[in-house]
Amino acid sequence: MNTASEQPPERQLVIVEDDASFARTLTRSFERRGYAVISASSHEELLVLLQHNRPHYAVVDLKLGGASGLACVQDLRASDEAMKIVVLTGFASIATAVEAIKLGASHYLAKPSNTDDIEAAFDLSDGNADAPVDGRQSSIKTLEWEHIHQTLVETDFNISEAARRLGMHRRTLARKLEKRQLK
Rank of each mutant, 00 (worst) to 15 (best):
D75M: 12
L173Y: 01
A58S: 11
S160P: 03
V14K: 04
L70P: 02
W145H: 10
R170L: 06
A78V: 07
A40M: 08
V153S: 09
I148D: 00
E45Y: 13
I38S: 06
S21Q: 09
R170S: 13
F157C: 02
S160C: 08
S42I: 12
N158L: 04
L152G: 08
Q7C: 14
D126G: 06
A95W: 02
Q150E: 11
P55H: 05
V133K: 11
I159M: 12
T142A: 09
A100R: 06
M168T: 15
F30R: 00
E146I: 10
I85F: 15
L173N: 01
D123I: 03
S160K: 13
E99V: 04
G127Y: 05
A58L: 00
A129T: 12
E10G: 01
L76C: 10
R171Y: 05
A23N: 11
S29Q: 08
V153N: 10
D19Q: 14
V14E: 01
I94M: 13
T155S: 08
R164L: 08
A20R: 04
T155F: 01
L177D: 03
A20V: 10
L50Q: 10
A110N: 12
S21T: 07
I159T: 10
S42V: 00
T96H: 08
H43E: 15
R171M: 09
L143G: 05
S21W: 13
A4C: 10
Y57G: 00
D61C: 06
D116C: 14
K63Y: 10
R28G: 09
L173G: 00
Q150N: 15
L70G: 07
A110S: 09
V37E: 00
